[in-house]
């Protein structure tokens, strides 16, 4: 698809326009600014659900079931399956679509697999812009799914309105989660495979861990589900709705939205500044020479910022 058609394709509601725009975001192409500012609803934000949990907890199956429920309410749903592992030479195998087969041909559902390849500073900047694009394209709900194995779930929680942590009985997840500090990011706990022995015990463990934590205005509910049997999915969504209502009522929704925008702006500044710094360091003999002489970076960094001045914005993003 020729790049010049991107805006037209996107506006016409062609899925390829959206898909390509997300690729540009993944590549950190600064020209995405023009696309988003050129759209009437470029600032429309979808509701964002974050899903995280250890491998094998059945996240994808749960997401699949949730998508079905949301579709019954005729909401347009996008799933971003984020794989934080990018081993070997930048390649990746992304296999999360498999569990969402039955939505494969539903035009109201968009599924996109994202690798972590090449994302400086993690996934958050690219993911945030992808969410923005999905909102502008007309999706009502965006589900961010990531395996909870490191940094990525914290980034997901920072972007999502409601973060669901998925656990299963008997895997000792509870303990792992506390160690990883993941308890703090949960707005809703889902104990999936709740028909397995040990489900009650797992729920009890979470409950007692929560009771040891600080008193918060929102107390994360614990919902049992069996995604594969389609059981408990309504309850999960009901818990999400309650959390959303709480965010609105408490004013936290507005606070979070503002904080997110500030993060986004700060991240953009950092990204743009970094790009210009690189350029000067590689191309400007004066800066490079100073660094060689000093052998300590502070003065060079100051010089870069002073010299770049108002020219920090990358050319492709300038208006």
């Amino acid at each position: 698809m020729p790049e010049r058609n991107l805006l037209a394709e996107f506006k016409a509601g062609n899925i390829r326009g959206l898909a390509r725009a997300i690729s540009l975001v993944e590549q950190r192409d600064p020209s995405v600014r023009h696309l988003l500012e050129g759209l009437a609803n470029g600032a429309r934000r979808p509701r964002v659900l974050g899903f995280t949990g250890a491998p094998g907890t059945g996240k994808s199956t749960l997401v699949d079931a949730l998508v079905s429920n949301l579709r019954e309410s005729e909401l347009r749903v996008a799933v971003l399956a984020v794989d934080p592992n990018s081993p070997y030479s930048g390649g990746a195998i992304l296999g999360d679509r498999i569990r969402m087969q039955r939505h494969a041909l539903d035009p109201g559902v968009y599924i996109r697999s994202m690798g972590a390849r090449g994302h400086l500073g993690g996934l958050s900047v690219a993911t945030r812009e992808a969410v923005r694009l999905l909102g502008a394209f007309g999706f009502d709900e965006v589900i961010l799914e990531t395996v909870g194995v490191g940094q990525s779930e914290l980034e997901v929680a920072a972007i999502a309105d409601t973060t669901l942590v998925v656990l299963t009985p008997g895997l000792g997840d509870g303990v792992q989660m506390i160690k990883a500090g993941i308890m703090e990011i949960a707005d809703v706990f889902v104990v999936n495979k709740a028909d397995l022995p040990g489900a009650q015990k797992t729920m009890q463990e979470i409950r007692s861990m929560l009771s040891m934590g600080p008193k918060l205005s929102w107390r994360a509910p614990i919902v049992g589900a069996s995604a594969i049997k389609g059981e408990g999915v309504d309850e999960v969504l009901a818990a999400v709705e309650r959390h959303r209502a709480h965010l609105e009522a408490s004013g936290e929704a507005a606070e979070r939205a503002e904080a997110r925008l500030k993060d986004e702006a700060a991240d953009l500044v950092a990204e743009w500044a970094r790009a210009q710094a690189r350029r000067l360091l590689d191309q400007d003999e004066a800066v490079a020479g100073r660094l060689r002489r000093d052998r300590i970076p502070y003065a060079a960094a100051e010089e870069i910022l002073t010299r770049a001045g108002g020219r920090l914005v990358p050319e492709a993003a300038r208006t």
Binding site: G91, A92, I93, L94, Q101
Partner: peptide, 20 residues
Amino acid sequence: ALRDAGFEIIYTGLRQTPQM
């Protein structure tokens, strides 16, 4: 092999129709 060579692979699994 393609992953190791640096490609990004999206594996869709079994029994896909041309439309899918």
